[in-house]
Simulated scan of single mutants.
Amino acid sequence: MSIGNSPQDERPSEQDRDDREEAARPSIGRALQQARIAAGLTVDDVSSATRVRIAIVHAIEQDDFAPCGGDVYARGHIRTLARAVHLDPEPLLAQFADARGGRPAPTPAAPLFEAERIRPERRGPNWTAAMVAAIVAVIGFVGFTLVNGGDEDGTQAQVAEGSTPTAGQPASPTPKKDKPTDPKPDPSDSAIAAAPRDKVTVQVSAADGRSWISAKDHNGRLLFDGLLKQGQSQTFQDNEEINLVLGDAGAIQLYVNGKKIEDEFQPGAVERLTYTKGDPEVG
């Protein structure tokens, strides 16, 4: 009877089979690298698609998870990269958990973000907006100054134009001299001396009182019908003749074609007169 191992002892144990399978299985980084190459992607392509920094992608493909900043962020990177290269992330995550003893390492107080943040571009100060704001402020100040200073300027201008005010007395403007009114000339021959010869011109003046008068042209068109007060006068002109009705002929002085009519009319007498282009004659 020989002493040796039994056939059962010569069969490989289950632990040995797991060890051999694990040795034959590629690492997480190797699996991700092979899948990336098979998909025809470069590290730059994967970094652009996942927003994971190129240095971290290289480190993970070398099974170096330290740049991830902790197991929690490493698991997030593995899941993100696996999806980018068309791999199922769950087996890789399970492999990572087995390698880490089934529990993720504690995360540092200030971990790195899973994907590299795109920092906003630092912009310089907006000089255009600043200049516009400054111009608006200057315009507003100038307008405010003009509005508030308008009354003061007006007061100073008035004082400068007038006489210098004395203490306790308000400034008074220089009195304006009234223009002398031209005295109205009395009716005379010169008042209508320029009467045209081809027309008849009659001037009626209420020299000695008031009188009602009526004047018509040669067609009978009424030129005037009303009361002349003392000192008032009316002038009428026509191509052929002027017909007059005087209510109080004694108060009236007539000038016909530039000449004074010397007829002595009686006060209160009503006269009907007609004058033509010739010498003054009563019609």
Rank of each mutant, 00 (worst) to 15 (best):
A99C: 05
V147H: 03
L81C: 02
F144W: 14
A84C: 14
S172F: 06
P187A: 07
P125M: 11
A167T: 14
V72E: 07
T164V: 10
Q158V: 07
V147K: 01
R117L: 10
D189T: 10
L81N: 00
P183Q: 04
C68A: 15
E121Y: 04
N126A: 15
P111C: 06
A109K: 15
G70N: 05
A171L: 12
V159D: 07
T164M: 04
L93V: 14
I118Q: 15
A171M: 15
F65N: 01
V136E: 08
D98N: 06
F65C: 04
A115W: 08
P108Q: 01
L93C: 14
P175D: 08
G154S: 12
G143A: 13
F144L: 15
F96A: 00
L92N: 01
I139C: 14
F96H: 00
Q158P: 01
F65S: 01
P165M: 10
Q169H: 10
R100S: 11
A84K: 00
G143T: 07
R103K: 12
R100D: 08
T80L: 13
A66I: 11
T181P: 01
A105Q: 12
V85L: 00
P120A: 02
P106R: 02
Q169V: 13
A99M: 10
L112H: 07
Q158L: 09
P104L: 14
V147T: 04
L93T: 08
F141C: 12
A133V: 14
P125T: 12
G149L: 02
M131A: 15
A105L: 13
G143E: 05
A171Q: 14
P173I: 09
A82Q: 00
D71P: 01
R75Q: 09
P120D: 04
E90F: 10
A109D: 15
L93K: 03
D151R: 04
T128L: 13
P180A: 09
M131T: 10
V159Y: 03
P111I: 03
A134M: 09
Y73F: 07
W127E: 05
P175A: 10
A160E: 01
D182G: 06
P67D: 04
A74R: 00
V138Q: 11
G143P: 01
P111M: 09
